[in-house]
Design a protein around this nucleic acid. Structure first.
Length: 1128
RNA sequence: GCUCGGAUGGUGGAACUGGUAGACACGCAGGACUUAAAAUCCUGUGCCCUCAACAGGCGUGCGGGUUCGAUUCCCGCUCCGAGUACCA
């Protein structure tokens, strides 16, 4: 019989199902191997040819491993909670469970007909109560845990309570909220239960927090960062806005470092690891506190005539600052000498030098004591007069002035210092409490001063700071804004808000910002630094404030240039600072006071210590990764097992799990805007407490599912201890790279957490990961523009002399690719509008794959709303069945689309369904063809060009076992040497290829082997039997059939044939002989001969002599078994 | 901008640690079988020169380098794809 794939495939699929051939042993002495596919979301569209690519690869690998003697776990299931089913429910009223069930049936049918060796007894569905019971259970464990930084792992909340009981909050080192309370054990004991719960919530690994979220009004839900693309929802493309909401969050940030370090221990594709590293975003630097130096909110009255705390006149700031800088670098000898006595609080008081006060610059000042110390040159009478005026002015500002002459200082420095010290000691503290409305400012510990904390990775550049920038949303902005700057700031904030609403992608090059009117003091040199706001600083990262160092950072440089702020060179290697910033770490520091002449490393470490000693900063590691929001205002997800009592969340009891998803009448938010669960009737805990109304996000169920497969039917645990101990982790995980920062990161997080609590044993869940490439589709595109009814009145315009008139009836215009703007009458606004539009896809079923011609009549039948539309393509326009060719076209009256390769997706109307191919060629052909397309990891557009070749190969293979009349026929002869050689070549090739996941190359090799054996007219049973085993992972159905025709059983666990290198050994080798590296000829030589003999044989050869043409070779290279190269 | 991939015939791709570039397949051309077509089989097929053969020249995105020898290693660029985006 000819190769009857349909019968064969049905027969064996039925056999496998009935015999549970691929059920993994729970009790096995064999080594385990766990092969996992990323389980699919069962969408209504069913599988397309892209989906099975990874499944086929993993199936080949699983079948291969079984032949190699492993106990293989290869399961499949469904990530069956999700948005599409819910959207469908909203539209049709059909319960998502019903839709999901139907979709799963389709998936199962499609998966079955490809012949996968899944152990279906372990199937999981995340939307089944038996499964999500355990998702909820894990949530409860997270709620009941906190992250102890001392042990560097998650612990039960009870250990935290013990610490509170024993020593209060003092020696707790935890990952927690920022607003935790400081308390003594006695305080803790005195707390009410509510207070305790409220405090504990700040430590729990899953917690409630008011956070700014990506709110999508159209979907009525919150989206994770990775679900938002360019301000629109990834699914559906609806606008997304920022909104503050009370949300459940997961403290994944506690695991940032472990998630980062773990990447070094796993065999994953570098790009995925890199993406996770970027996502975690570790930066090592320092946090620095810049004390705030102004009382901006001081009212007229309070501040009249004096600067309540300390400041320069803002208007004169720039002048003063420049002067101060100049003065400092041109200090008189006396000033310099005195500074050496006063600096670093040697007097017991903090003294600043060259400090702007009002409209003056004081030589030295102690702000606390309101004392100014001046050193006079004293040689001119005019100067003395000026000094007098100056003193009076400073007195008016509330400062006292003592003066010393240059001589006094130089001749008797100690006496001067003593005088100053005693003067300071005798003066009362002028309390910094005068910091006006400082209630809204957060107060620095112990110093009584407000400060702005910044994070920097270049603390070494701190002497180059010439401004501080806050995010416009920074909590201190209001308080810091002076009356004079209020309009500017408010204006700017309004502008920023508008900008984020519009297009955040927009220009990153335009410099913008506004000055608050306030200053901070740079702690390393006591200089005044103006505080600005700008939207390039993000509220969510670090402290929402940065120090601007224009000489070292291009963004800061642009900002400084734009607003005319100083650019201070800080390294001697920095050049061209008037052209651009120079971020070098080379060279020695200059203009940097106590780190002058140091190099980068020493300076950084010195500064870190200095800052810490001074109490104004310290070395710090910062992570970009934020805690993950864990809640959706949606119906079709896991209910969160929490109820509220007096506004505080409490877990339901463990034995009450699962908390079932209640029935509701409509899948929409309630009238009052609450999530759909708010509609559920009588849904409350113990009939009195409100349940949490949001459900878990899509990634909840997929963050631990690989453990459920280990023991899918277990009712007492998410998986038994024994199963977890045996299967440990996933040895091979195959899936798309689109999950790099979502699923793969969250899964690692939950895995580490479960390990901390002792439920699982491995630190990392997926040892080896492979990303299959995307199979792309070929879309057919046209341009669509003008929305329904958007054109009004009568418009006339021409296209290459063709006159068109559109009245009110014109609803839509469709323009194909390739029409140039110049071909349209430019006067028309409509024309301009058309070309603004984006490409739209037409369903590929209406186009001809080869010619790209669109069957426009059929297309319009499918989209009747386009009935009155005008279609344009490169050759002309089409409307109402008439084609108007352009004047300069070749007059061909056909409508062409523009083909484009992109992601295969239902929304792009370019999907190719595998069912058709299986119908025509069978599953074995599909399996082999998908592998034959190219390397697994590579993305490639789908085409069926080569599928015939693969099908022909299988027929040829089938034929090896049959005679001319298609009757099964093999011979029990002794295999010929050539036959064994062909066989062992493929035995080796396939095991090498499979181990390195190079499936495409082994398909080619199978073809070569079958071609060789066909040429040899091989009918040998022994050879063909082995060949069947080797091919069976790739084409299991045909192999099972032949295996049984050969009289055998249990193909799937037959040992893989043993490779014998002896069969490949050759006595001779046709050495390629090249002259100067260019291959000229082949020469047969025995493989046993060595260099000398080989060279003389080669030189004796007539043909070689011909190439030499009488010349004497300079050198002859001989590599045994490889090559002969003659150098002339 | 940054990070990571990639670029080989008409097409998909092969060449694993530097050693015969283009395996295998598609497509195309010619032939056999057939009344004809499909299917099947055979032959050829990187480009250039040549009627053809022999022989030769050029060839792995571009320009250099290392080497007896480079698709492979190094330096510098171009283009394409993916991810990320003011991350301090």
């Amino acid at each position: 019989m000819d190769y009857q794939f349909k019968q064969i495939e049905q027969k064996w699929q039925k056999f496998w199902a009935e015999n549970q051939t691929f059920k993994a042993d729970t009790n096995s002495t064999k080594p385990k191997y766990y092969v996992l596919d990323m389980f699919p979301y069962p969408s209504g569209a069913g599988l397309h040819v892209g989906h099975p690519l990874g499944y086929i690869a993993s199936d080949i690998f699983s079948r291969y491993k079984r032949l190699k003697g492993f106990n293989v776990l290869h399961p499949m299931g469904y990530d069956s909670f999700g948005l599409p089913a819910e959207q469908y429910a909203i539209q049709t009223g059909q319960h998502p469970a019903i839709t999901t069930e139907a979709n799963i049936a389709t998936y199962r049918r499609q998966l079955d007909q490809i012949g996968f060796s899944f152990d279906w007894s372990r199937e999981v569905r995340t939307s089944e109560p038996g499964y999500y019971k355990w998702t909820q259970w894990i949530f409860m464990q997270l709620f009941n845990s906190w992250y102890n930084l001392e042990t560097d792992k998650a612990e039960d909340i009870s250990t935290l309570i013990e610490k509170f009981n024993a020593a209060g909050s003092a020696d707790v080192k935890a990952v927690c909220d920022e607003d935790i309370k400081s308390f003594m054990p006695s305080d803790w004991a005195a707390f009410s239960d509510e207070e305790k719960q409220a405090e504990l919530l700040k430590y729990r690994l899953t917690y409630l927090k008011e956070s700014t979220v990506n709110w999508c009004p159209a979907l009525g839900t919150v989206l994770a960062n990775d679900e938002v693309k360019d301000g629109f929802s990834e699914r559906g493309g609806h606008p997304v806005e920022q909104k503050k909401m009370m949300q459940w969050s997961m403290r994944i940030s506690a695991y940032a470092e472990r998630l980062l370090q773990g990447l070094n221990t796993i065999d994953w594709p570098e790009p995925v690891k890199e993406m996770q590293r970027n996502w975690i975003g570790k930066s090592v630097g320092a946090s620095v506190k810049f004390p705030i130096s102004l009382t901006p909110t001081l009212s007229e009255g309070e501040g009249a005539g004096s600067y309540g705390y300390e400041t320069a006149d803002p208007l004169l700031w720039e002048v003063l600052k420049t002067n101060a800088r100049v003065n400092r670098s041109h200090q008189t000898e006396g000033e310099d000498a005195l500074w050496q006595k006063l600096r670093n609080s040697q007097t017991g008081h903090k003294i600043r030098r060259q400090h702007p006060i009002g409209t003056y610059i004081a030589d030295f000042i102690c702000l606390n004591k309101r004392l100014i110390i001046e050193v006079d040159g004293g040689y001119h009478l005019e100067n003395q007069e000026n000094d007098k005026i100056r003193t009076e002015a400073l007195n008016q500002l509330g400062f006292n002035v003592i003066r010393f002459s240059n001589e006094e200082v130089l001749n008797n420095i100690n006496m001067v210092a003593e005088k100053i010290t005693s003067e300071l000691n005798n003066r009362p503290d002028s309390a910094p409490a005068k910091v006006g409305n400082s209630a809204s400012l957060s107060l620095g510990e112990g110093r009584g001063e407000a400060y702005i904390e910044v994070f920097t990775t270049r603390v070494d550049t701190i002497f180059g700071v010439s401004f501080i920038v806050l995010a416009p949303e920074h909590e201190l902005v209001q308080a810091l804004t002076t009356d004079g700057q209020k309009a500017d700031i408010e204006n700017y904030i309004a502008q920023t808000k508008k900008k984020s609403e519009l297009d955040r992608m927009a220009d990153t090059k335009t410099v913008s910002g506004a000055f608050t009117g306030s200053y901070v003091i740079n702690p390393v040199n006591d200089e005044f630094v103006p505080i600005w706001i700008a939207d390039y600083v993000l509220a969510g990262y670090g402290t929402g404030a940065v120090m601007g160092v224009p000489s070292g950072d291009q963004r800061d440089w642009l900002f400084a240039k734009h607003f005319d702020l100083p650019i201070i060179q800080i390294l001697d290697t920095q050049t061209d600072l008037d052209v651009e910033a120079n971020a070098t770490k080379e060279g020695k520091y200059i203009n940097s006071d106590f780190i002058d002449n140091l190099g980068y490393k020493e300076a950084t470490s010195y500064l870190n210590h200095w800052l810490e000693r001074e109490g104004v900063g310290k070395a710090k590691v910062n992570y970009r990764m934020r805690d993950a929001i864990f809640g959706r205002q949606r119906y079709w997800g896991e209910p969160i097992p929490v109820y509220f009592k007096d506004g505080l969340p409490y877990l339901i009891k463990e034995e009450e799990l699962p908390l079932l998803l209640p029935e509701i009448d409509k899948y929409l938010p309630t009238e009052s805007g609450e999530p759909p669960l708010g509609r559920a009737a009588d849904w409350s805990y113990e009939d009195q407490y409100e349940y949490e109304l949001s459900t878990m996000p899509g990634w909840a169920g997929s963050s631990w599912y690989w453990y459920r497969y280990m023991d899918a039917q277990n009712n007492c645990d998410f998986a038994s201890k024994e199963a977890i101990a045996y299967w440990k982790d996933v040895d091979l995980y195959i899936g798309g790279s689109e999950h790099a920062t979502g699923h793969l990161l969250y899964s690692r997080f939950w895995n580490k957490f479960l390990k901390d609590l002792g439920y699982v044993n491995e630190e990392e869940p997926f040892k080896k990961l492979i990303n299959q490439g995307m199979i792309q589709g070929i879309s057919q595109k046209i341009n669509i523009s003008g929305s329904q009814g958007s054109t009004s009145g009568s418009n006339n315009y021409r296209i290459n002399g063709l006159q068109f008139s559109f009245g009110d009836k014109t609803e839509r215009l469709i323009i194909s690719q390739d029409v140039k703007v110049s071909e349209i009458d430019k006067g028309s606004d409509i024309a301009k509008e058309f070309f603004k539009t984006s490409l739209h896809n037409v369903d590929i079923q209406y186009t001809n794959e080869l010619t790209n011609e669109l069957d426009i009549e059929k297309y319009i039948k499918w989209r009747p709303d386009y009935e009155n539309a005008i279609f344009w393509c490169s050759g002309g326009c089409w409307q109402g069945g008439v084609f108007y060719p352009f004047e300069n076209s070749n007059g061909e009256k056909r409508f062409f689309t523009k083909p484009e390769v992109e992601k295969m997706s239902k929304s792009k109307f370019n999907v190719v369904n595998p069912d058709v191919l299986i119908e025509n060629y069978g599953a074995d052909t599909l399996r082999m063809y998908e592998m034959f397309l190219g390397p697994l990891e590579q993305s490639k557009p789908w085409n069926t060009n080569g599928i015939e070749g693969v099908f022909k190969f299988l027929r040829k293979f089938w034929r090896l076992f049959h005679n001319e009349e298609w009757i099964f026929h093999v011979e029990d002869s002794i295999p010929a040497k050539a036959e064994l050689k062909a066989l062992h070549k493929i035995i080796k090739k396939v095991q090498d290829d499979v181990e390195r996941f190079s499936f495409n190359t082994s398909v080619s090799s199978f073809m070569i082997a079958v071609n060789e054996l066909t040429d040899l007219k091989c009918k040998n049973r022994q050879v063909l039997e082995d060949l069947v085993v080797v091919l069976s992972p790739y084409a299991p159905h045909i192999c099972e059939e032949l295996w049984s025709l050969l009289g055998n059983t249990n193909l799937s666990t037959t040992p893989y044939p043993k490779f014998n290198p002896a069969y490949l050994e050759e006595a001779e080798f046709a050495y390629p002989v090249s002259v100067n590296g260019k291959m000229k000829m082949n020469l047969n030589l025995s493989l046993s001969i060595e260099q000398d003999e080989a060279i003389s044989t080669v030189l004796a050869n007539e043909q070689v002599q011909g190439y030499l043409n009488g010349a004497t070779p300079k050198k002859i290279v001989f590599v045994k078994g490889k090559i002969v190269n003659i150098v002339i």
